[in-house]
Amino acid sequence: MKRISRRDFLRYTGFGLTGLAAQQFLIACGGKPEEISGSMEASKSPSATNGLPTSVASATDSIPTSVVSATATIRKDYPYLVVAHGEQPEEMVRQGIKALGGMERYMKSGADVIIKPNICVGYNAPEFASTTNPWVVGALVKLCLEAGAKRVRVMDYPFGGTAEQCYRISGIEEQVIAAGGSMEVMQAIKYVEMDIPNAVSLKKTKVYQDILNADLLINVPIAKDHSMAKLTLGMKNLMGVIRNREAIHPSFERNLVDLATLVRPHLTIIDAIRTLMDHGPTGGDLDDVKVQNTLIFSPDIVAADAYATRLFDMTPEDIRYIQAAAERGLGMADLSGLKIEEISV
């Protein structure tokens, strides 16, 4: 029998009442209450327990029910993973998303979208590849708005410098604003301490609630060198949604995978246009940057990470957290047999 502290009791009671109130309100408005509660429930009980994802729909099962039903009607022959090569980021994003079935496959009109790039520090301009390519992020904002998103917010929780400095210096703020999105400084008040069900190591952590509640969460990491993880890719980018990031490092792989069971981006796009090959994750020397002109798209974060290892002359077996995530059913690390579409833009 797990003991519930008074605070948690009050909090959950608060959630419950809020949910009930919201449901009543929505029913009164003639809306569909399951759209609201659906995303919350889904993100609270990730598919980790359901075994391996066998289709796109199950890999993206935290999409609100109405969207999932939409995905059920899509052609089954969409690729599992798309790799775009080219030199124009915006066009690569457009073609890549199109090949994956279009943004409409992942969201419906009026959706509340959050894009989570890697804006870990504010030390360097975008060409140093310590932060996600701003034009990629900008293009995603445009695509979401074109698909009818109610609002598109872009956020990260930097560790080096203030969020505002990092947003500005990374160049992301400029592109996001120009595209019609907004930058959100992650507010302390929106973090809620959460239990991670079925966690092996990270049983509790403070998570940014909006990230869990978004109708569509797009994870846009930049592929970089990292001394411990070897590479920082999609899953490692999730560390930006929790408060106490440093505590994750001891027993890193287990903690990271535990986090990945809770935070389930609907789409992961790995920016490998310019990759940081050494002195990551902060960087600062252009000699460490390799131009690869590649973007990887997949609703399966593990598969996207697994593919990205190739760009560093590694295999998914080299990266322990990718293996661990696959073993726990979070996605596919073995890419053989998956439908992968490579496009040149």
């Binding site: 080096g160 990292h226 411990m228 490092h249 002195h279 902060t282």
Partner: peptide
């Protein structure tokens, strides 16, 4: 396992 200090160090090298 802990490399936080190295990870955090802001210097280019």
């Amino acid at each position: 396992n802990c490399i936080v200090c190295e990870e955090m160090c802001p210097l280019p090298h």
